[in-house]
């Protein structure tokens, strides 16, 4: 049960920070996502994000900074294993499921559904 409470609090807070930034600065969603992913990479690299993942679990990995964290963690892990080439293979490997799923399901959904007008 504690899992869910922490996931809710950590994940909700990350989203709330993004919302406040969007309201206050007129940043578009796409820009927010770019900043958050990059922030996730940097925070992941310097080890700040790790405790958040320990605490919030899915609350820290499901939001986009978690995607950045996985990229950074993957790059570092592969550098450890394979040297310099790991910098290029590690990030995408660690996030491959999410990226491939998004591309594949994106295509499938486009085949199946048509966009609807808003009311």
């Amino acid at each position: 049960m504690m899992d869910y409470i922490w996931a809710f609090l950590v994940g909700g807070s990350i989203c709330m920070i993004a919302q406040i930034l969007m309201d206050k600065t007129n940043l578009t969603p796409a820009r927010i996502l770019v900043y958050f992913v990059t922030a996730g990479v940097i925070l992941g690299a310097i080890g700040v994000y790790e405790p958040l993942v320990k605490l919030g679990k899915a609350g820290a990995t499901v939001p986009l900074p978690g995607f950045g964290y996985s990229l950074a963690k993957g790059a570092i892990r592969e550098v450890e294993k394979y040297g310099l080439i790991g910098a290029f293979t590690g990030g995408v490997k660690a996030t491959s499921a999410g990226i491939a799923a998004a591309v594949f399901f994106g295509y499938i959904m486009a085949l199946l559904f048509n966009p609807k007008t808003k009311n």
């Binding site: 992913v37 996030t95 994106g106």
Partner: peptide
Amino acid sequence: VGSKMFVIAGPILVYGISSSIIVGIIYY
């Protein structure tokens, strides 16, 4: 479908992946 798929998400991948590569190189 094929090319417009990334109009919004493309930059996320570009910046996320590129910065992770930089992190990897620095770490190395």
